[in-house]
Design a binder for these strands. Structure first.
Length: 488
DNA sequence: TTACATT
């Protein structure tokens, strides 16, 4: 390789980072995917449909099938399913067109319409099981009364169909958050329930009428996370606008974030961006592989926060039976684990959206992987983003008793702004102060954060105490009262 | 070795 070019290539490879790995694995894994030529990033609609294609003769490979399906549009990905051990052709495939419309056309033109040579049943072309069919019969129910039990909700929804699942979202204390998920046997039943129940009544104690809508899909949830995180960082990224395709959107953000992260690692510019970048990677990996990146459970007290050690992002795409539509970690008590941190209306998106705490955990975990993999490979790219001035002016010092946190083991490069960002998800941060050595201007790695209410402070302790960053774990405690330890 | 609102 030419000496002049090698550095650039290495940098590009490094920048692709774990995300790149996740993408390529998803495409090429152990199945013979129809991969895209290097450098050519194929786009697909954000609402593209993954099709299952059945009744394919076993002697036909991707290259043989491609012409047949290309008739309906540009193919984003075509993968013949193979037995994971023997590599044997399973007589079916997954097919994703770049355009949603192509999928619909292919489905109506081909499904049960013709029989391929050697087969005695007609070809099957229909949305893969992973495509929403679990989600589109699941409802989010909001504005329930806090006293209403699962049984109450069941009774309310029973008239419209078979209920497969009914879960009230609850806080850690078991108190209802006034919302629930209800899953029917079919989309139609769910729709019927929406038609009849949405806005139909106001439950005792609820502030407005009953909300009944389809639960967010996986994609919507992830997108919302990204927007949320982007909002928190004050990121406005023009790159993302021109990329309508979801995958590309993610990738674009990630690349930007990777650049930012590089800046943060190289020059201590913006550690929170690093966190966000890590999160973006996690989300992208999640998106692409259809797997939950890491089991997430809120940490508490001094216990080891689970799922944030150094578990690598799963990079094995499950080629068949992908059930990427179980975005929440396994639940033992019928509640989404990620919901349990929030108690007092801190939740940035009421009830059904993901919390900030689990992204944070993912973020930190991701940061560690990233740092491990790419310790110093970056040049600072500070101009990648206009660096926003810290938004929150620091006026007050201390909040009321029980609202002030002492935080130790902060990363060296964290300043007031980063500290603020880190704790913003838990409530209204009225002050955040990192102590710096006045001689060296170096952080002393500890600081204070004050909220305007004790519940926020408690939520922050629950979520962030014991949080691993690098080799250390954050210590997050209530600040000692001023008069403590006085001898008299 | 963990330093609690600073000169």
């Amino acid at each position: 390789m030419a000496a002049a070019g090698s550095g650039v290539a290495a940098a590009a490879a490094a920048e692709a980072g774990p995300a790149g790995a996740a993408f390529s694995t998803a495409n090429s894994g152990r199945v013979n995917g129809l991969s895209h030529p290097p450098g050519a990033i194929a786009m697909k609609d954000h609402d593209a449909i993954k099709l299952f294609v059945g009744q394919i003769p076993r002697n036909l490979e991707e290259s043989d099938l491609k012409p047949l399906f290309e008739e309906f549009g540009k193919i984003y990905e075509l993968t013949v399913l193979k037995d994971r051990f023997t590599g044997m052709h399973k007589g079916c495939a997954f097919l994703t067109y770049c355009a949603r419309d192509s999928a619909l056309k292919a489905q109506s033109a081909l499904h049960e319409q013709k029989t391929l040579p050697g087969m005695n049943r007609p070809i099957q072309v229909k949305p893969a099981d992973s495509e929403g069919r679990g989600e589109d019969r699941k409802l989010f129910v909001g504005m329930l009364g806090k006293q209403q039990s699962e049984d109450d909700v069941r009774r309310l929804f029973e008239p419209f169909g078979q209920i497969e699942e009914c879960t009230i979202l609850r806080g850690p204390d078991g108190a209802s958050k006034g919302c629930a998920f209800v899953k029917y046997g079919s989309h139609g039943e769910a729709q019927a329930a929406i038609n009849s129940l949405h806005g139909s009544q106001t439950m005792p104690g609820a502030s407005s009428s009953l909300v009944v809508k389809f639960a967010d899909t996986d994609k919507e949830r992830t997108l919302r996370r990204m927007h949320q995180m982007a909002g928190q960082l004050g990121i406005f990224n023009p790159m993302t606008i021109q990329f309508g395709a979801y995958g590309a959107y993610t990738q674009a953000i990630m690349q930007q974030q990777a650049a930012l992260m590089a800046a943060a690692q190289g020059t201590c510019l913006n550690p929170m961006a690093a966190i966000a970048a890590a999160q973006m990677q996690q989300m992208a990996a999640f998106n692409v592989s259809g797997l939950v990146a890491a089991p997430l459970t809120p940490s508490s007290g001094t216990s080891t926060p689970p799922g944030i050690s150094t578990a690598p992002v799963p990079s094995i795409a499950t080629p068949l039976g992908v059930n990427g539509f179980s975005p929440l970690p396994p639940q033992t008590n019928g509640q989404p684990a990620s919901e349990t941190i929030y108690t007092n209306g801190i939740h940035p998106y009421p009830a059904q959206s993901p919390t900030v705490a689990d992204p944070l955990q993912q973020a930190y975990a991701g940061m560690q992987h990233y740092a491990a993999a790419y310790p110093t490979a970056y040049a600072p790219i500070s101009q990648a983003f206009p660096q926003q001035a810290p938004i929150i002016p620091q006026q007050q010092r201390e909040g009321p008793e029980g609202c002030n946190l002492f935080i130790y083991h902060l990363p060296q490069e964290f300043g007031d702004a980063e500290l603020t960002q880190m704790f913003l998800p838990f409530g209204n941060v009225i002050s955040a102060k990192v102590f710096v050595d006045r001689a060296t201007n170096q952080s002393k790695c500890f600081g204070f954060v004050s909220f305007d209410n004790p519940a926020s402070a408690q939520a922050a302790i629950q979520a962030m105490n014991g949080f691993q960053i690098g080799m250390k774990r954050l210590k997050v405690q209530l600040k000692r009262p001023k008069d403590a330890n006085r001898p008299y």
